[in-house]
Amino acid sequence: MKPLLSVENLRIAFPSRQGPVEVVRGVSFNLGRERLGIVGESGSGKSQTGRALLGLTPVSGTATADRLEFDGVDLRNATAKQWRSLRGARMSMVMQDPKFSLNPVMTIGKQLMEAVKLHGGKSEARDKSLAMLEAVQIRDPDRVMAAYPHELSGGMGQRAMIAMMLVTEPDLLIADEPTSALDVTVQIEVLRILDNLVTQRGMSLIFISHDLKLVSTFCDRVLVMYAGRVVEELDASRMSEASHPYTRGLLNCLPTITGDSRPLPVLARDDAWLE
């Protein structure tokens, strides 16, 4: 089967005083109809990878790839018009903090309906928006439609954000730390909603997170990134069989409620992993 998205040798570089610095150094993967997790610590390049897929690399950076194809469209030379028709309609992104991603002076309803209208369907915009808010388990969609972003709690805001990203029924959703700003109990609820939507609508999901435990329980397949490279790729169910010392180190250094290892095993970084 042809993958929905294929990435080959993606590189992203930013200029610095010592010349260009590559934050992503040759990432390749294929994505089908699945939940793919990208895990890494800060500075591993996981977020930049996600942004590059949507053409959202900051202007100072340059992204190059041997192949960057979404459903037959070459994203490397996509025009502004092509991007407009892709972003939102066919692929969209949920960011970490809804406070910064929602327009603070527009009601949630207006922003939702605008998203629907932009991609056709003016007449049923309101119904569609309400239905979407219900789908993300907002109990009182009419109130939320009329609310401004600051009037919502973190969990509510993130749900509204997910609703906005999914209302156009994209084929691919990129979620960059979608629940990191939320409390653990809310986090699980939001993930459950996301999971249901992905399953029901047959969407592909790229889930970017620093939380290996969360990703391994939520996704089908996991890419582990370290210093701009994918050091290991494995099925989420076989996380315990991880072979790369970095993945193993990440797994072991977490304190657990049941375990009692003290001191905690510390991750010893090896320069060989950079190669």
Binding site: E41, S42, H210, D211, L212, G249, L250, C253, L254, P255, R262, P263, L264, P265, V266, L267
Partner: peptide, 10 residues
């Protein structure tokens, strides 16, 4: 980060 957290907790 998780690995740094372990160091600080230790």
């Amino acid at each position: 980060d998780a690995s740094i957290q372990a160091e600080v907790l230790n």
